[in-house]
């Protein structure tokens, strides 16, 4: 029974950070919160007697997935910067842009 209550608490944490991840305006915040969902899920897996799955979820769900998301976001931001630079430089066609 104590384990059930602990699972429900972890589940409430998961649902709260899941809603936060969807509703947040900032992409970085939502990526980190989805990592929090995975971390709470790995606690639930551990409580219900599945240590193998808990290890996998902790390493992959909250570790590598977050890193993969952040790298992809950085790549996308990089593209944004180049885009705006081109837009600044191309139509004006002035030589010696600052950047």
């Amino acid at each position: 029974m104590a384990i059930d209550i602990a699972i429900i608490v972890a589940g409430a944490f998961m649902v709260a950070s899941g809603i936060g991840a969807i509703a947040s305006k900032s992409l970085v915040v939502s990526i980190l919160l989805s990592g929090g969902v995975s971390l709470a899920a790995s606690v639930v897996f551990l409580l219900m007697g599945a240590p193998d799955v808990a290890m996998t979820e902790a390493a992959i769900g909250s570790g590598l997935t977050t890193v993969v998301f952040l790298y992809a976001l950085a790549r996308s931001r990089q593209a944004d910067d180049e885009d705006s630079n081109e837009r600044l430089e191309a139509p004006a066609s002035r030589s010696g842009g600052s950047k």
Partner: peptide, 17 residues
């Protein structure tokens, strides 16, 4: 023990990261 190829592979990928 708990763990295996998938978990160990992820740990090695973490070292690469």
């Amino acid at each position: 023990t708990p763990g295996g190829g998938f978990q160990g592979g992820v740990v090695i990928a973490t070292a690469v990261l």
